[in-house]
Lab assay of single mutants.
Amino acid sequence: RQGFVPAAYVKKLDSGTGKELVLALYDYQEKSPREVTMKKGDILTLLNSTNKDWWKVEVN
């Protein structure tokens, strides 16, 4: 499932696989259909980080 999360809630990881991955630093509950819920410690695939406030991710 793809959607947006606050950029301040995730940290980029060095995956070494060519995929950009991020680590969820905090729990986040989606507040609109365009967002996704994540739990602290989740590893997500980063799809787009051009917006400084909201990053598009895919929940694996």
Rank of each mutant, 00 (worst) to 15 (best):
R1F: 07
R1H: 08
R1P: 06
R1I: 09
Q2Y: 08
Q2C: 10
G3D: 01
G3L: 05
G3C: 04
G3K: 03
G3S: 02
F4I: 07
F4H: 05
F4P: 00
F4L: 09
F4T: 03
V5F: 00
V5M: 00
P6G: 02
P6L: 04
P6R: 04
A7C: 07
A7E: 03
A8N: 14
A8H: 12
A8G: 10
Y9D: 02
Y9E: 01
Y9C: 11
V10R: 00
V10N: 00
V10Y: 01
V10L: 15
K11A: 11
K11L: 14
K11W: 09
K11C: 13
K12H: 08
K12Y: 08
K12R: 14
L13W: 08
L13C: 11
D14C: 14
D14R: 11
D14Y: 14
G16Y: 12
T17S: 13
G18N: 12
G18S: 12
K19N: 11
K19D: 09
K19W: 09
L21K: 09
L21C: 10
V22L: 08
L23Y: 09
A24T: 04
A24K: 00
A24D: 01
A24H: 00
A24L: 02
L25I: 10
L25Y: 03
Y28A: 01
Y28P: 00
Q29Y: 15
Q29D: 14
E30S: 15
E30I: 07
S32N: 12
S32V: 04
S32P: 04
P33T: 09
P33K: 09
P33Y: 09
R34E: 12
R34M: 13
E35W: 03
V36C: 08
V36T: 06
V36L: 15
T37K: 05
T37I: 03
M38E: 00
M38R: 00
M38Y: 01
M38G: 01
M38L: 09
K39H: 14
K39G: 05
K40Q: 10
G41V: 02
G41H: 04
G41D: 06
G41A: 03
D42P: 00
D42V: 04
I43Q: 04
I43L: 08
I43H: 04
T45M: 11
T45K: 12
T45H: 10
T45V: 15
L46Y: 01
L46A: 02
L47Y: 03
L47Q: 03
N48D: 15
N48T: 07
N48Q: 10
N48W: 07
S49E: 14
T50Q: 11
N51V: 05
N51A: 07
K52E: 09
K52Y: 08
K52T: 12
K52A: 12
D53H: 15
D53G: 08
D53Y: 15
W55G: 00
W55D: 00
W55S: 02
W55Q: 01
K56F: 15
K56L: 15
V57W: 00
V57L: 03
V57N: 01
V57Y: 01
V57T: 01
E58M: 10
E58G: 07
E58F: 05
E58D: 04
V59R: 11
N60T: 12
N60S: 13
N60V: 12
